[in-house]
């Protein structure tokens, strides 16, 4: 269903560094209902993949929708996705629009 989001893009981030290297803000019941990327750290996996940008909103992580999830829950899902050894990448469904 996430793929039906207008103007959304699937970005696969290989785990190329020991950190993911993004900061997010937002989550359900805040002014920013879906997590938005506010920082990309140089040298992190996200920076290395060159496709994630500050300001993008994350709709899904490995096919799991972040809609309705509070900030901490969304952050945990992303942290778990980075930590798991099942995959050597994370798929983000992102949109440029809030």
């Amino acid at each position: 269903p996430g793929l039906l989001e207008p103007m959304s893009t699937l970005v696969r981030v290989p785990k190329s560094a020991s950190t993911l290297g993004i900061a997010i803000e937002g989550g359900a019941n805040t002014r920013q209902p879906l997590p938005r990327i506010v920082t990309i750290q140089r040298g992190g996996s996200a920076h290395n993949c060159r496709q994630l940008k500050v300001g993008q909103v994350i709709l899904e992580v490995n096919g799991i929708s972040l809609r309705g999830r509070e900030h901490r829950e969304a952050a945990c899902l992303i942290a778990e996705a980075f930590k798991t050894k099942e995959k050597d990448y994370i798929d983000f469904l992102i949109t440029e629009f809030n």
């Binding site: 803000e25 989550g27 002014r31």
Partner: peptide
């Protein structure tokens, strides 16, 4: 719009 303004800001988490 009113409701939106009353929603709190989010914390920021580095991942």
């Amino acid at each position: 719009r009113e409701k939106r303004l009353t929603l709190p800001p989010s914390e920021i988490t580095l991942l």
